[in-house]
Design a protein around this nucleic acid. Structure first.
Length: 429
DNA sequence: TCTGGGGTCCTAGGACCC
DNA sequence: TCTGGGGTCCTAGGACCC
């Protein structure tokens, strides 16, 4: 029972997944074509390799490898610090190209997008597979890098497709052929099945994606949570998650965190780090026009254990000086394990529009005055570069010129603490 | 894998209410 | 005071993603 053009049964929906190969490294090559064919690695700013060209991969460089090790073992490798503004530009260009084929473009991450081309083969007088091929060709020609493209009836299957022949692949999974592909897809390679769940599934004899979809729905539902049942359906070709175009909903949370070496138990260092994170995360909130109802922060021990706490201020606010006292008072209970600690972080969530905060019933004038102060601070920082002005509590105390900045320091001298009452701002330059 | 940074979504269980 | 049963809201934490 085949429909007239045959394609309806093969692709009840036609979802394309586009994935930039070694994206950050490829962006560097695209900007400087003389790098073509050479091993290029990005990640100098973090100290670990975050992206690499296939020439670098061929040498044996993997994601997460320390940059120092890369330098030592492979002196011929060209290493870059990530230029995320540039990568974002390339990413936008990528989506504009995809948008020529369908308005239903869903950017998933900086280097990946989904596109729903269902139905467009008719007005364009072509086939889905030809459209996917053309999309890939345009992307590569115009952006100067390769892409792995997958076409299938669901997002999850399209991910299987694009991964199947990386790099520079173009793989089609019409529904009748899904089982062939799933038979050779190890369960841990499936999008949404991580280390924990793949171990669990393997214990029950589910080692491939095919074995997974061959289990009854009830079997899955009784062992795993809702997202896995949805995954099961998507792998069977049933659309659960449409590729939705347009504006993604507002961000749900903002986080800022940093690891420092060596680990420390110095309360002053931890407090200063947290203050910086708080400022940075609230700056993002102000840029987005939101204020958090919840503030969490954590310290991470040497053994990667997290100690965290969540605070609910009386009223939501995105002004650092109003939240800083919470961190100061809640930090000590977190440190009872003694440390040392290798990282701290601040997360804000339950974000609400800033406009609904402005009418602060309790202290309208004080809050509004403070909000004005921060407006000026943000403007100054915008004009003169990142964080020229910030809370004094986040300054390294009495740092000597040339001394290791921030957390590297031992923090012998007391940083001045003027955080009680009104904030104390200080210019660094 | 001697392990970076920024996100999303879901669930279990307790508190509280009727 | 003891007894149920059911609903909602909130929070901590798990698992996963790029």
């Amino acid at each position: 029972m085949k429909s007239r053009n045959g394609e309806e049964l093969e692709y009840p929906w036609a979802i394309v997944h586009v994935d930039g190969d070694g994206f950050f490294a490829s962006c560097e090559v695209a900007r400087d074509p003389s790098l073509r064919g050479k091993p290029v690695v990005v990640g100098a700013e973090r100290g670990i390799a975050t992206a690499m060209t296939y020439e670098a991969k061929a040498l044996g460089i993997t994601r997460g490898m320390p940059i120092a090790k890369v330098r030592r073992l492979f002196p011929e490798v060209i290493i870059f610090a990530g230029d995320y503004a540039w990568y974002t530009e390339v990413s936008r260009a990528m989506n504009r190209i995809i948008f020529r084929y369908t308005p239903e473009v869903e950017p998933y991450s900086i280097d990946e997008s989904f596109a729903d081309i269902t139905g467009f083969q008719i007005p364009k007088k072509t086939t889905y597979e030809a459209m996917a091929r053309a999309m890939k060709r345009d992307l590569q020609k115009e952006l100067g890098m390769t892409f792995s493209v997958g076409l299938a009836p669901t997002k999850t299957l399209a991910k299987v497709a694009s991964k199947h022949d990386k790099p520079d692949g173009c793989v089609f999974i019409p529904l009748p052929r899904a089982k062939e592909f799933l038979a050779v897809t190890p369960i841990e390679k499936v999008w949404g099945i991580g280390r924990r769940t793949s171990v669990k599934l393997k214990e029950e004899g589910v080692s491939t994606a095919l074995r997974f979809i061959d289990r009854p729905e009830k079997w899955v539902a009784s062992r795993l949570s809702k997202p896995y049942v949805e995954l099961w359906k998507e792998l069977r070709g049933e659309m659960v998650h449409p590729a939705h175009a347009g504006v993604r909903g507002k961000q749900q949370s903002f986080m800022h965190t940093r690891t420092f070496t060596p680990p420390t138990s110095d309360r002053k260092v931890l407090s200063r780090e947290l203050t910086r994170h708080l400022e940075s995360v609230l700056k993002s909130a102000r840029e987005d026009g939101v204020a958090p109802r919840l503030l969490s922060f954590f310290v991470k021990t040497q053994t990667f254990k997290y100690r965290s706490t969540t605070i609910k201020p009386l009223h939501p606010t995105n002004l650092p000086s109003e939240l800083l006292p919470f961190i100061e008072t809640q930090l000590d209970p977190l440190l009872d394990s003694g440390g040392p600690y290798r990282a701290t972080g601040v997360i804000i969530h339950d974000l609400i529009p800033e406009s609904s905060v402005a009418s602060d019933l309790f202290a309208p004038t004080a809050h509004e005055r403070l909000a004005k102060v921060y407006e000026r601070v943000d403007a100054l920082n915008e004009r003169y570069g990142a964080s020229v002005v910030h809370l004094a509590a986040s300054r390294p105390g009495q740092r000597k010129r040339g001394a290791a900045p921030g957390p590297m320091r031992n923090g012998k001298k007391k940083p001045k603490n003027h955080t009680r009452g009104m904030p104390f701002f200080q210019a660094e330059r």
